[in-house]
């Protein structure tokens, strides 16, 4: 079978960890992992992972490298997975951006809040129940580092349906976000979701040795279409 090329945006952030996770996957297809730093490297890719890091930095470096427009085009037609900062870049709109706003790529019709939990000290670890991943009765240990918070899912019927892949319990939400009578189904509890061929996680699956999210992205978003 033909080789499949997965790109990892390597401007700043946790790209080396994603690469290590992809290399650990046991697939019946040969996987070519490309670190993407310019448009010609992007053009070789069948799918892209945007890693965690600082979203403002990644967006700025993308613009300086002439990658911003090619990335926007790419996310219209090909599978993209954003983790943490990458999740912010894939969103349609962002709250809490730096003064003067922040450039986004779009691709997933949600509104997201930057750094919803507070400073580095507020980073935490949580055990997640998964929907649709292999071995889904086994919880996934997730690291949240200055993570974004999903605020709203777009209700427009023009958009592809959104599948919720994982939520965190209300008790783990930052106190500033918790409201009275908040439902367990509140969008703010969503930490992983899929829309079409795009995947979004607000935490860092690449920092663990549990590669189920990488496997899910490659099998379900990239190969099974």
């Amino acid at each position: 079978m033909a080789q499949i090329a997965i790109g990892i945006l390597a401007l700043q952030g946790a790209f080396a960890e994603h690469k290590a996770s992809l290399h650990r996957l046991d697939l019946n297809r040969q996987l070519n992992v490309i670190l993407v730093r310019n448009p010609s490297e992007l053009s070789l890719c069948d799918a892209l992972i945007i890693p965690g890091g600082e979203s403002t930095t990644i967006a700025l470096l993308a613009r300086l490298a002439g990658l911003l427009e090619p990335l926007k085009e790419f996310s219209k037609t090909k599978p993209v997975w954003g983790t943490c900062a990458g999740a912010i870049l894939l969103s349609e709109s962002v709250v809490g951006a730096k003064k003067g706003g922040q450039e986004l790529l779009g691709g997933i019709s949600i509104k997201i809040a930057r750094n919803g939990w507070g400073s580095q000290v507020e980073s935490f670890e949580a055990s997640l129940e998964l929907n649709g991943l292999r071995d889904s009765t086994r919880p996934f240990q997730a690291f949240f580092i200055r993570a974004p918070v999903v605020l709203e899912l777009s209700s427009s019927s023009d958009n592809l349906p959104i599948t919720i892949v994982a939520r965190i319990p209300l008790g783990l939400l930052p106190p500033s976000l918790v409201e009275e009578n908040m439902s367990e189904d509140d969008p703010r509890t969503i930490v992983a979701l899929r829309q079409g061929r795009h995947l979004l996680t607000t935490f860092h699956p690449e920092l663990t040795e549990d590669d189920r999210f990488h496997e899910y992205f490659v099998r379900n978003c990239v190969l099974s279409v």
């Binding site: 952030g13 080396a16 690469k19 965690g52 930095t57 580095q120 580092i145 920092l207």
Partner: peptide, 23 residues
């Protein structure tokens, strides 16, 4: 604590740095 730490990765000289790579 989720301070920047190198994941074990492939153990090569240039691997892996939390979200803190190349900054």
């Amino acid at each position: 604590s989720v301070a920047p730490s190198r994941s074990k990765g492939d153990g090569s000289a240039n691997s892996s740095l939390g979200t803190f790579g190349v900054r």
